[in-house]
């Protein structure tokens, strides 16, 4: 059992950690579990239902976009490439842990760090799987605004990274392992 837990992914471990923290909080602040669930039942049902939709979108994109898509379209630190990198990040579904393998492959293929920063920024800030949540809770306008904001934030993050690297350059590191 312990061996199986040790072998499980970081998301599963994180899940157990969150359950543990919740139990501790409930015990410290004397929170009634059943009352907590009943009073939040609307939001719980909505989030579970939206998660199922989010996973459908995520699955569709996984099968529609080829794995080497990002690698094909990203090369230099040009502003347009920083924008494409952000856009690709926005379109790439999945938790951040799942995209590090993609980022490592991109790095090995010679993609520069500012491009990776733009990609990571776009990927983490918003994504297609967030659409049901954000539209469902805050409305379509809010979601469109968040996409626009992400498309601006990605290139700015990359440009700031280039600026910082002038004073504190990256050390090249072997990413083979």
């Amino acid at each position: 059992m312990i061996q199986k837990f040790k072998k499980s992914g970081i998301d599963i471990k994180m899940g157990f950690l969150l359950i543990g923290i919740s139990i501790v909080l409930m015990m410290i602040f004397n929170i009634n579990f059943s009352q907590l669930i009943i009073s939040n039942s609307d939001i719980i049902i909505k989030i579970i239902y939206l998660t199922a939709i989010a996973m459908m979108i995520s699955t569709a994109i996984h099968f529609l976009i080829p794995e080497n898509f990002a690698e094909k379209h990203l090369r230099d630190n040009k502003l347009s490439h920083l924008f494409y990198a952000t856009l690709l990040g926005v379109l790439t579904p999945g938790p951040v842990y799942a995209i590090y393998p993609i980022v490592i492959v991109l790095k090995k293929k010679g993609i520069k760090n500012p491009i990776l920063v733009a990609f990571l920024t776009g990927q983490t800030i918003i994504g297609p799987a967030r659409a049901p949540f954000e539209i469902g809770f805050f409305g379509l306008k809010f979601y469109i605004y968040r996409i626009l904001l992400a498309l601006i934030m990605g290139p700015i993050a990359a440009l700031l990274f280039i600026f910082l690297s002038k004073f504190w350059p990256d050390k090249e590191r072997n990413t083979e392992s």
């Binding site: 599963i12 969150l18 409930m26 989030i47 199922a52």
Partner: peptide, 13 residues
């Protein structure tokens, strides 16, 4: 769903 439910429990707590 496992992660979301665990996270949801944490968030509502």
């Amino acid at each position: 769903l496992f992660l979301v439910c665990a996270g949801l429990l944490f968030a509502i707590t």
